[in-house]
Design a protein around this nucleic acid. Structure first.
Length: 194
DNA sequence: GTTCTAGAAC
DNA sequence: GTTCTAGAAC
């Protein structure tokens, strides 16, 4: 077997698991009762399958809206419902939570992250994970709502800016500490936990 | 988005 | 020698 090829020979007894493309995974999670936290006529709240903090939810529309870049003024009330669900969770959870969107999402279906500030989680592994939530790559809910109301659409960031944000040196989100690498950052984050 | 792992960094 | 990161995945 060559070094990078995974052995794909499986139990031939089992039916072949036809993997849908990974970017469609949220559509599956939205339908999975085990992952659903809240549900209204237009919105579903699920637990992130790979949480990057102790609390990490996703808020998604039932309607087929791919991303923030498909939003227009007709979606303002939908987004305001996102905000209502955020406020509900703020009251329910004993933690500081932020709500926002990634500037360049990887997964299909519009999704708003609701995530706690601790950033303590086994699924937080890479610099890209970190910078996706702690740089301006993470666009706060309020900013998206404001831009939608003022411009009627959301402007994309350039590939250069995207690249630069991902290359941002590691820095703690709760103090000025600049860790050498991810393991050091993760150790440090534990020191902020009550 | 995750997993895996070669090769860089230490 | 071990830890850590970064790029391929058909």
């Amino acid at each position: 077997m060559s070094k990078r090829s995974k052995d794909t020979t499986q139990n031939l007894n089992e039916p072949a698991k036809k993997m849908k493309h990974w970017s469609l995974g949220l559509l599956e999670s939205m339908k999975d009762p085990k992952s659903i936290v809240k549900q209204t006529q237009k919105v579903v709240v699920i637990r992130d399958k790979y949480p990057k903090a102790r609390i990490h939810y996703l808020v998604l529309p039932v309607d087929d809206i791919n991303s923030i870049y498909k939003l227009n003024k007709s979606h303002i009330s939908l987004l305001e419902e996102f905000g209502k669900l955020f406020e509900e969770l703020l009251q329910e959870e004993n933690a500081q939570l932020r709500a926002g969107f990634h500037a360049v999402p990887s997964m299909q279906r519009l999704h708003m992250h609701i995530i706690s500030n601790d950033m303590v989680s086994p699924s937080l592994k890479t610099k890209v994970h970190w910078n996706s939530f702690t740089t301006s790559f993470f666009i706060p809910y309020r900013d998206i709502l404001k831009e939608l109301k003022e411009s009627g659409s959301i402007k994309k960031i350039s590939n250069d800016i995207h690249k630069q944000l991902m290359m941002t040196p590691l820095k703690c989100n709760q103090c000025e500490f600049q860790p050498k690498n991810m393991p050091h950052l993760k150790d440090h984050l534990l020191s902020h936990v009550k």
